[in-house]
Amino acid sequence: MRAVVIRGFGGPEVLEVVEAPLPEPGPGQVRIRVAAAGLNPADLAIRAGLFGPRELGPGEFLGLGWDVAGTVDALGAGVPGLAEGAAVVGLVSGSGRLKAHAEYVVLDAEAVAAAPSSVDLVHAATLPVTAHTADQALGLLGARPGDRLLVTGAAGAVGGFAVQLAHHAGLRVVALARGGDAPLLRELGADEAVSSLDGVRVDAALDAAALGGPALAAVRDGGAYVTTRPDAVPAAGHGIRVAAVQVRPDGARLAELAALVDRGVLTTRVADTYPLEEAAKAHARLAEGGLRGRLVLVP
Score class of each variant (00 low, 15 high):
P41S: 11
A287Q: 15
V79G: 13
W66K: 12
L188C: 03
A162E: 02
E13H: 10
G96H: 06
A100H: 09
Y104Q: 12
G57Y: 03
P183H: 09
G11Q: 07
I6W: 11
R294H: 11
P214D: 11
V200Q: 14
A177N: 13
T133G: 08
A109S: 14
G293P: 10
G160S: 12
P25V: 11
D135A: 10
A3V: 07
T152G: 01
S118C: 02
G251K: 12
E16M: 02
P249V: 01
G237D: 14
A166H: 00
Q164C: 11
A279N: 06
G49S: 12
G63V: 04
L260H: 09
R2A: 02
A280L: 03
V202E: 09
R172S: 10
P80H: 13
V265W: 01
D221K: 10
P275A: 13
R54P: 05
V200G: 15
G179T: 14
V298D: 07
V79C: 13
A69I: 04
A205M: 02
I46R: 13
R241I: 01
V5W: 02
H238Q: 06
R201Q: 14
G78S: 15
R220M: 07
D120W: 02
G28H: 13
G90P: 03
L171W: 08
R292G: 08
A77D: 15
F51L: 15
V72L: 13
A36L: 00
R47G: 02
V247F: 07
A215P: 04
E277V: 03
Q29W: 12
F161L: 08
A235F: 00
A218E: 10
V242W: 00
V245W: 05
H101Y: 07
A131K: 01
V194R: 14
E110Q: 14
